[in-house]
């Protein structure tokens, strides 16, 4: 038996919007730790890891570890039927082939339940090693989204170069080229507006902008984004989910032949 009650239902709606275009089908894993997901995109270039910790739910009952295969487009359709202020409860029976999403309006005058069919998904679970990254950039998530969107109108790939002087986003295309440099800036009124660059050594990596743009669909989840890089390793683009956990996107770099 599984029963997870989330007071801030809009968080789950935002999570689905953040991942549904990258991943078609995925297993949601439920354990004593929390509600989590790990999935790759169809071409195995990117990986998304989601964690919503048990403590973040108002009520969290998970009698035994459960893996529920869901089509994310269908799940998104159902969650779109929940109001932004609704409380969402996820319910499932052990060994059942459906999951139920229950939506309660804030003043309890409307209660809906939507039952969705589960599916069997054969997915590989990858071990993500703990890594000390050589460059960690924290910046406003909207600024990062803006840069990715702007550069993708010029080129298909972005070179992200981080050094003590700042972080440079560069692209080239048929019509020309573009560079955006962000310098460390901590003299801001609100901490979430700061750009903080921690560098062990300079890093320069090339990525497909199509994926970066897809990751920025998680922008509504957090005011800040953290981009962690090491030479010749996948980048991690992380959006923290307040009080609950995170959504992390891993993207394999483009490598010169």
């Amino acid at each position: 038996m599984l029963e997870l009650r989330l007071l801030q239902g809009s968080l789950l709606k935002k999570v689905l919007e953040a991942i549904k275009d990258l991943v078609t089908d995925a297993n949601f894993d439920c354990s004593a730790t929390g509600f989590s997901l790990q999935a790759m995109d169809s071409s195995h270039v990117a990986l998304v890891a989601l964690l919503l910790r048990a403590e973040g739910f108002e009520h969290y009952r998970c009698d035994r570890n459960l893996s529920m295969g869901m089509n994310l487009n269908n799940m998104s359709k159902m969650l779109k039927c929940a109001g932004n202020d609704d409380i969402i409860t996820i319910k499932a029976d052990d060994g059942g082939d459906t999951v139920t999403f229950m939506f309660e309006s804030p003043n309890q005058d409307k209660i809906s339940d939507f039952e969705m069919k589960l599916m069997d998904i054969d997915s590989e679970h990858l071990g993500i090693p703990e890594t000390e990254y050589e460059a960690i950039i924290r910046m406003p998530s909207q600024e990062f989204a803006r840069i990715c969107r702007d550069l993708s109108t010029i080129g298909d790939t972005v070179v992200i170069s981080a050094s003590k002087e700042g972080v440079k986003f560069s692209t080239k295309g048929d019509i020309g080229s573009a560079n955006v440099v962000c310098r460390q800036n901590t003299s801001v009124d609100k901490p979430e507006d700061a750009t903080v660059i921690e560098i062990q050594q300079p890093v320069s990596l090339t990525f497909a902008l199509r994926y970066m743009n897809s990751f920025t669909k998680a922008t509504p989840l957090s005011n800040t984004v953290t981009v962690s890089m090491s030479n010749e390793l996948p980048v991690v683009v992380e959006y923290k989910i307040a009080e609950m956990g995170y959504i992390r996107f891993y993207l394999a770099p483009k490598i010169e032949e």
Partner: peptide, 14 residues
Amino acid sequence: DAQQGRISSFFKKK
């Protein structure tokens, strides 16, 4: 041209 790496070549199967 640079070649796109795959995530599964960096992270091992559990």
